[in-house]
């Protein structure tokens, strides 16, 4: 865990690909399992019409303004009973594991501080906000969700 020491966290995050068994990675995955997987499924594929597919898609949100905030402010993420650092690790873990190739080249991992700021403002009209962003993704990148 990278409690407090931000530099140490960064090192771990950056060395992810090489270090698949890192303790943080394991813990992030466990937190995903315990807090998210029930709805989002082990591979992030969700359930048609009920839970959106994250694999091969969720990274696109980071290409449009507000998308980076949105994927943390959805209630499932923002309200999870884990610390800011743990949620940052889960978000980074799921982006890299489910949707690495859709991420912008400039992708910067979430920090605990950023997560802390975002989750204090959870979204209410999640569905409406999502539709706006999906439209922006379509306009900007020409990709649509496979519904």
């Amino acid at each position: 865990m990278c409690t407090g020491i931000r530099n140490a966290c960064l090192v771990v995050l950056l060395s992810w690909g090489a270090n698949a068994g890192a303790a943080d990675d394991m813990l992030a995955r466990q937190n995903y399992i315990l807090n998210c997987q029930g709805c989002h499924l082990p591979d992030g594929s969700g359930s048609k019409g009920n839970v959106p597919k994250m694999n091969d898609f969720v990274g696109y949100f980071l290409h449009v303004p507000g998308g980076r905030e949105f994927i943390v402010q959805v209630p499932g993420a923002a309200n999870a009973p884990i610390s800011d650092q743990e949620l940052a690790d889960v978000m980074n873990w799921l982006l890299l594991n489910f949707s690495k190739k859709e991420l912008p080249a400039s992708f910067e991992p979430y920090s605990a501080a950023e997560i802390g700021r975002l989750r204090r403002e959870p979204l209410i009209e999640v569905h409406d906000r999502r539709n706006e962003l999906i439209a922006q993704i379509r306009d900007k990148l020409g990709v649509t969700e496979d519904k």
Binding site: M1, A20, G21, A23, D24, D25, M26, L27, R29, Q30, Y32, Q37, P42, D43, G44, N97, F98
Partner: peptide, 14 residues
């Protein structure tokens, strides 16, 4: 301690 006992590191390899 953070010794991982979870024998899988990737979600798609349950």
């Amino acid at each position: 301690s953070l010794i991982p006992l979870l024998p899988v590191a990737r979600a798609d390899a349950m």
